[in-house]
Amino acid sequence: MQRDDPDYDDAAWQAIVDNYGERAELDLPADPEAAAVGQRADEPVDEPVDEPVDEPVEEPVEEDRFVPDQPPPVPVPPADRLLAWLGVFGSPTVLLASVILGIGLPGWLTGLLVAGFVGGFCYLVIRSPGSPRDPWDDGARV
């Protein structure tokens, strides 16, 4: 039975199923050199081929790839909200950097940074909408 024969696969699977759970009996090669390369003694030895094999190389088709649309530009918030966001993120950053670098800040500047953080946070909470823009929107986007 040859490997090209369609019944070869069926016979191979049937042999696996028949021998499931049993220890397989292996034919040991008589030639120790064949054993080193993992070849059975009754199999013919393949001679190396010196000629290169020209196989067609399939190049990917560009039209089959998904190319997403360009994302919209990031909107710039109004000046009041931008200032509030700078207070929420900028003040702790400056305070943390001064502590890590060991730079002493005057008390009035530290108080101003803390006030900027608290004020920016409160402003953003007050200005946040109390209900969704679309009452039927559950927040899921596809």
Rank of each mutant, 00 (worst) to 15 (best):
A30L: 07
D80S: 11
E51S: 13
D138Y: 04
G102I: 05
P78N: 15
W108Y: 12
F66Y: 15
P106F: 01
G119Y: 06
W13L: 14
W85A: 10
W13N: 12
G38P: 04
Q14G: 09
P73F: 12
F121T: 10
I103T: 09
P75K: 05
E62L: 06
Q39I: 10
L96C: 10
D137A: 10
D4M: 09
P135A: 09
T93W: 08
Q2I: 09
G107V: 09
V61L: 15
E62Y: 02
E55H: 01
E47W: 07
D31G: 02
A35C: 01
D64H: 12
G139T: 04
Q14P: 01
P48N: 04
V53L: 11
V114Q: 11
Y20P: 00
E62V: 09
L95S: 00
E62P: 03
V37I: 15
A15F: 13
V142F: 09
V61I: 14
L26D: 05
P29H: 00
F121R: 08
G102F: 08
L95N: 02
Q39E: 10
A15K: 14
D7M: 06
V37N: 07
G111Y: 11
E33Q: 00
A84E: 08
A115V: 07
S131T: 06
A30K: 05
L112G: 07
Q2R: 12
D9F: 11
L109V: 14
A115T: 08
L83F: 03
D46G: 14
P6H: 02
A84F: 09
L86A: 15
D4Q: 14
G87S: 09
E47D: 11
W136K: 15
P6C: 03
L113R: 11
V17H: 02
S98I: 06
P72V: 13
S91D: 04
A84S: 15
D10T: 00
P44T: 02
G38K: 01
R141M: 10
D50K: 03
P77G: 04
D46N: 07
L83K: 11
G104Q: 05
